[in-house]
Write a protein that binds this DNA or RNA. Structure first.
Length: 560
RNA sequence: UGCCGGAUGGUGUAAUGGUAGCACAGCAGAUUCUGGAUCUGUUUGUCUAGGUUCGAAUCCUAGUCCGGCAACCA
């Protein structure tokens, strides 16, 4: 289960559950549920809910159900069901045998509906959609009662059965709860319980042409499954009285309770299904698993480990007020997780040649490189060395600014694991004046990394031996949007804030061991960042790496 | 201007009448074969105005601002 270095925050839901258990409510049982509609892919906002639902159940020795809330067949499909299950498993949670479909309850729900009709608590209404709205009224004024509100129960029952049998067109009539048309809460003004929808369902096929609404179905599902704590997002707060009304009709000894919390908002991204879909549909990103997307599939492909997402979800807490979480907090969780686990490798993204003028032409050497300084058990590996090397172009400056600790004429730096070199000059293209190679001298006494005389150098560079370097496709991902709140202004299309540099692809030169990385596996390119072998496109013969996140870089920050 | 909910540093949060704390970000330093990691220090906060109280982020009153609600979506 989620491991967190800090003790868990005492957020209000944790407290409510603890109090319920202390007072003996539900006999101490804790049953939660995660109820996605299978009409889209899960994103990190859902992950917050998943972590909460499964996390609370685990913490209090209860269980969490996974339930496909498939009461509106229009966009739902088995493909989404599978994707959702896969994503939740990947996140690290297990629902055991408690996997359910709302659609499996349709018969029981219809029974409850008939019962409500018989008891005069529900009626079939024939108002058109427009009339329905007119009768409902507005928040500041009470609504009017439907002319069908007081029809005989037998008549409603007859009509409801004919609705179910397919006798009516979509929207021709509906089943409504009889509550209170004067309620200040619109959701209590005789809400719709069942609507006619002559649409086949991905699971029940043509068996039904009426479907229960969320407000009717959800409390029933919770009741059927013995859910105790039904956690959902803030926008359902105004639905709670209706949730409680439906539950009350069941006359349960231990009615479930709905508790609302604020959804997650993250800077530099969008979270709404509609906007995510637009990006995918219009080809602005490569698909639902594009590494720039906040979808779980995207994050997975980006190389974000599931434990980082769980850690992040614990860190952000749970409250009842809307907030906007800094992407830096997610990045911190990602770095923390990867720092512990990712093997280190050397790769040069923007190569500049270095020639060691005092190193014999054909002499080769091999140095021992540490695989993970945070994990001695990861061992070491040999890296090849020679007269010609590649270093990062940004690691050399002919005319360096103050505090530049890297290579420049006359300066001495360390080549990681190899030894100290001093820049003696440059080889320039006579035509353009461009630096073709940096010339340097290797200090043979420093073989392996340190000088025996104890002298120190400020800079250590990563490098690869020219003769052994393998080309690697590297996809440098950055934030998808260039502003913190791309959808803050309703009047401006969020797409106009897309970051034009959210993906830059380069061919890097890397140590050969990199090609052997398994698809999906994470590595750190020393001094650059965390990368992962692409889940789709990586192959030993054609390595492809995605940048998950850069390393913190106090030098470039200082440079502004 | 109806109803529901909310407001604590730049950001996310804790403190449940008794010293406003933690994390991220930032800054400074130590250390370092990654300008990484680690360690130390540090800047910045209770929406406003009244009230209750020995004592208020917390309780009360009034106000301000923010979010949600008028799909036969979830």
């Amino acid at each position: 289960m989620p491991e967190s270095p800090e003790p868990a925050a005492r957020h209000f839901i944790r407290q409510i559950i603890a109090e319920d258990r202390a007072s003996g409510r539900y006999d101490g049982r804790v049953v939660t549920r995660f109820p996605p509609e299978p009409n889209g892919y899960l994103h990190i906002g859902h992950a917050k809910a998943v972590c909460l639902d499964f996390g609370m159940a685990a913490e209090f020795g209860g269980r969490c159900h996974l339930r496909m809330d498939d009461t509106n067949p229009e966009q739902e499909s088995m493909e989404y069901v599978e994707a959702i299950r896969d994503d939740i498993r990947w996140l690290g949670f297990d629902w055991g045998e408690h996997f359910y479909y709302s659609a499996d309850y349709f018969e029981r729900m219809a029974d409850v509906a008939e019962d409500l009709i018989r008891r005069g608590r529900a009626y079939v209404c024939e108002l058109s959609t427009e009339a329905f709205k007119a009768y409902r009224g507005v928040p500041t004024r009470p609504g009017r009662e439907s002319p069908w509100r007081n029809r005989a129960a037998a008549e409603s029952l007859e009509l409801f059965r004919r609705m179910r049998a397919g006798a009516f067109e979509d929207g021709a009539l509906c089943l409504r709860a009889k509550i209170d048309m004067a309620s200040p809460n619109l959701h209590l003004r005789d809400p719709v319980l069942y609507r006619v929808l002559r649409v086949p369902h991905y699971r029940t096929g043509d068996r039904w042409c009426i479907y229960p609404t969320y407000d009717f179905a959800h409390p029933l599902e919770d009741a059927f499954e013995g859910v105790t704590h039904s956690l959902c997002t803030l926008e359902f707060e105004v639905h709670r009285p209706l949730y409680d009304w439906v539950i009350a009709q069941l006359d349960l000894a231990q009615p479930p309770r709905q508790i609302e919390f604020a959804r997650l908002n993250l800077t530099y991204t969008v979270m709404s299904k509609r906007k995510l879909l637009a990006l995918v549909r219009d080809g602005l990103v490569g698909g639902w698993d594009d590494p720039r997307l906040p979808t779980l599939r995207g994050l997975r492909r980006r190389g974000v480990p599931p434990e980082a997402i769980r850690d992040f979800c614990e860190r952000i807490g749970v409250t009842k007020y809307e907030s906007l979480t800094d992407l830096a907090l997610l990045e911190h969780a990602v770095r923390a997780a990867l720092n512990r686990s990712a093997p280190r490798r050397m790769a040069v993204l923007d190569p500049l040649k270095v020639v060691l003028t005092n190193w014999p032409e054909d002499e080769e050497a091999s140095f021992e490189a540490v695989n993970n300084p945070e994990d001695p058990s990861a061992g070491t590996r040999p890296v090849a060395f020679g007269r010609e090397l590649w270093i990062e172009r940004a690691d050399f400056m002919e005319d360096p600014p103050k505090r530049f600790h890297r290579l420049s004429p006359g300066a001495e730096v360390r080549l990681r694991y190899a030894g100290l070199i001093t820049c003696t000059g440059v080889d320039r293209d006579p035509a353009t004046g461009e630096v073709r190679a940096v010339l340097a001298q290797f200090d043979p006494a420093s073989r392996g990394g340190n000088a025996p005389d104890g002298r120190r150098v400020k800079g250590t560079l990563h490098w690869v031996a020219a003769r052994h370097a393998v080309p690697v496709e590297v996809r440098l991902y950055d934030r998808l949007f260039s502003v913190p709140e791309p959808d803050a202004d309703e009047a401006v299309d969020f797409r106009t804030h897309l970051n034009p540099d959210s993906l830059r692809t380069v061919t890097a030169l890397a140590e050969p061991t990199l090609a052997e990385t398994a698809a999906g596996a994470a590595v750190q390119f020393e001094r650059l960042g965390y990368f992962c072998a692409d889940l789709r496109d990586h192959a030993p013969a054609k390595p492809v790496f995605n940048r998950t996140v850069t390393l913190r870089d106090s030098w470039s920050r200082r440079q502004g």
